[in-house]
Amino acid sequence: MSNVVPENTDAAVIMRDVDKWYDSYHALTAINLTVARGEKIVVCGPSGSGKSTLIRCINQLETIRSGTITVDGIELTNGGENVDKIRREVGMVFQQFNLFPHMTVLENCMLAPIKVRGVSKAEAEQTARRYLERVRIPEQADKYPAQLSGGQQQRVAIARALCMNPKIMLFDEPTSALDPEMVNEVLDTMIDLASEGMTMLVVTHEMGFARKVADRVIFMDKGEIVEMGEPESFFSNPQNERTKTFLGQIAH
C-alpha cells in the first residue's frame, strides 16, 4: 500500500507502522497513513475491520503497541502529557452521541472550553451559541439532550466538539445510530464543516457523503488498510477483491 500523499512533516496526522492488539487479537496491522491539513478522509470497511479503532488511536482513546502517531506536529507517546495537548486539538463525534445527559445543550458545549481552555463563562457561552447557530439548533440551547431527537443530539455533539476550536475532527459512525430521516441533517452539517476547510477523518458507510466530500477513501479489512484512493477511482474501479466484495454488498 503506498500512500497517495507524500510524507509531509506538516501533515495533520502521520501514522507509521502502527500496530494495535487487544490481548491476543491483532486489531490493527502495520497502519501507515498521512493526512494532510484540510484533507477529508472517509474510512469504510466491514464491522470488526478496525476502522473505529484506527481513528480512536488518533486521540488515544486506544493505546497502540508499536509504531508512532504524530498529530499536528506532536508525537503521541502512550500515556504521556502530549496526549492532553492533542486531545485539545482533536474533536470527536461518537456513534452514540455521548452528550452529558445531566447538562443542558449549552452547558454541554461550555464545559470543556471553561475547564480545559480556561476561557471565561461569558466567552464560552458566546462561542457555544455561535456553534449551535452553525449546526442550526440555537433554539434548543436550554434543553436537555433527552428532549432532542437523535439528529439534533448529534448536531449538538458536533457543536460541542467545535467549541474547543479543534484542528482535526474525528467522526466515528456519526449517523449509524440515527433514524433514516435524520441522517441527512447530520451529513449536511458535516458537509458544511468540510467546505470550511476542516481536517476530517470520518468512519461511515454513507457512500454518497464519501463521493461528495472525501479527498480519499480508505477501505479496511481485518485490521489492515486494504485500499486507498480518490473516491472517483475507488468506487468506479476498485483494485482489491475484498474492496469489490464489500462495495458490492453495500451498493444499492
Binding site: N59, Q60, L61, D84, R87, R88, V90, G91, M92, F94, Q96, N98, L99, F100, L111, A112, K115, V116, R160, A161, M164, L170
Partner: peptide, 23 residues
Amino acid sequence: VPAGQSEASYALGLKYGDRMRYV
C-alpha cells in the same frame, strides 16, 4: 455510568478531576 461519558470527556481533553466532578 456509560463508558461513552468518560470517552467523550477524554476526547474533549477534560482532566481526571473535572471528568469525575462534572461528568
